[in-house]
Design a protein around this nucleic acid. Structure first.
Lengths: 238, 238
DNA sequence: GTCAATTTGTTCGTATGTATT
DNA sequence: AAATACATACGAACAAATTGA
């Protein structure tokens, strides 16, 4: 007996979907058994089953015969973001093996936010260094680093020798640097990004714009990092 | 003359795409004119046009006759995240009108991260308050707030009176609170979320898990906020 | 307000590589 | 294997829109 215009099981599915989205049923936990849900909503068990099947289709839950229905755990890597976090340390701390792969480098004129954040004039030359950071050979972060060329000429070659941004920077007398601002947004991946991050094109990427400064507070790097949203959850502690 | 297996204009499109994704051509700036690009890549103008048209199709650039081709500016609202940021203050500071709409409330057992972060036993009751926060009537944040029920019984009704979480909390003798941790991830919106946030289902949402503590450091709220990725860019200052 | 310069849009024509019949 | 159709790429010329002197 469909009272309103919408099919009953779809209404139930949306209700459950909302509860999962709001975390009311936390990730990793089991849904109440079907008879219980049926009683709670005052519908037949078949109707609940149809609704839950829809959730399973969209990958929100996984149904296991005899065990129950479980809200899909995200299984994301908690990636701490702080003034002094270094990729290498983060990954090592999680007992995984960090590696940074060289993608490309170029000399480009500063423009837009990049120029502003690096305190350069539009048109001043920058060194662009694009790298892919992996944990246990799993791509985590596709990063574009911009350095003022006047100060860091040749840093791309040094990076290819030592395989680490931090190490390469020590050759330029930068022994410590801190992250000043971090801007976070999200969008769908471009095809090249999805490929390098080994990510389905249907899942979004987290985009981080960061500014690193040296001990004197002078900006030394502007970075645009793209993180696979499936792989990481950024953690800010304050 | 297709040398390799891939079509020429697609290779050019991907090259331009990468440059835009890496911020090498910053958002809001103009692409070089077609003849210039054609010369740079050593191809005919038609070929460049086909590549740029592909970028326009995917919404990466907008082409304007007589003016040029422009990298789509994001036009996102910079949303500062700090230990003391309040939605109302942020939006007011941007000269927009903040409003919080009541969506629903419920009593739910604590579970998973929520229980851990609130330092509750699994099964202890929480008050769930789901709200939609708008700036100039534009939906920004769909938030699920969890409060320990023992301490905040009736807060949902107070919220519906005063229209603000912060104000409602003062009735419970909470005159100051700070954000302890913020976890950021991203995923595609559920149908209900897309509707409330007035967002296309093809664009992702930023998901923020937050923990707020009172002056004594006791957790008072666990929140799951879903932000329209088109509308906001989160800004962390350190 | 007009004109010239710049930039994208459109339409010819020609040649060639790829796939189908 | 040959004929046909289709997509790709290049070249040239002109039209339409925008901007700034």
């Amino acid at each position: 007996l469909r009272q309103s215009g919408v099919v009953l099981w779809k209404k139930l599915a949306e209700k459950l979907e909302n509860e999962i989205g709001a975390g009311e049923i936390a990730a990793g936990t089991r849904l109440p058994p079907e008879p219980e849900l049926a009683a709670r909503f005052g519908v037949n068990r078949h109707t609940i089953r149809r609704a839950v099947a829809a959730l399973a289709d969209m990958g929100l839950v996984s149904i296991e015969q005899g065990r129950g229905t479980f809200v899909r755990g995200t299984g994301m890597l908690g990636y701490p973001i702080g003034p002094r976090t270094r990729f290498t340390d983060v990954i090592s701390g999680l007992n995984q093996f960090p590696r940074a792969r060289f993608i490309r480098s170029a000399r480009v004129p500063a423009m837009g936010k990049m120029a502003t954040d690096l305190k350069l004039q539009e048109g001043d030359l920058c060194l662009l260094l694009e790298t892919l950071h992996l944990a246990d050979e799993r791509p985590i972060n596709l990063a574009a680093h911009y350095f003022p060329l006047a100060r860091f000429e040749g840093l791309d070659r040094v990076f290819q020798e030592v395989g680490s941004i931090t190490k390469a920077l020590t050759r330029f007398e930068i022994h410590d640097y801190t992250r000043r601002t971090t801007r976070v947004s999200s969008r769908m991946p471009l095809s090249g990004e999805a490929e390098l991050l080994q990510q389905p094109i249907g899942k979004p990427v987290l985009v981080l714009e960061t500014v690193n400064v040296d001990e004197t507070g002078t900006p030394i790097e502007f970075g645009i990092g793209r993180f696979a949203s499936e792989a990481v959850q950024l953690v800010f502690e304050t």
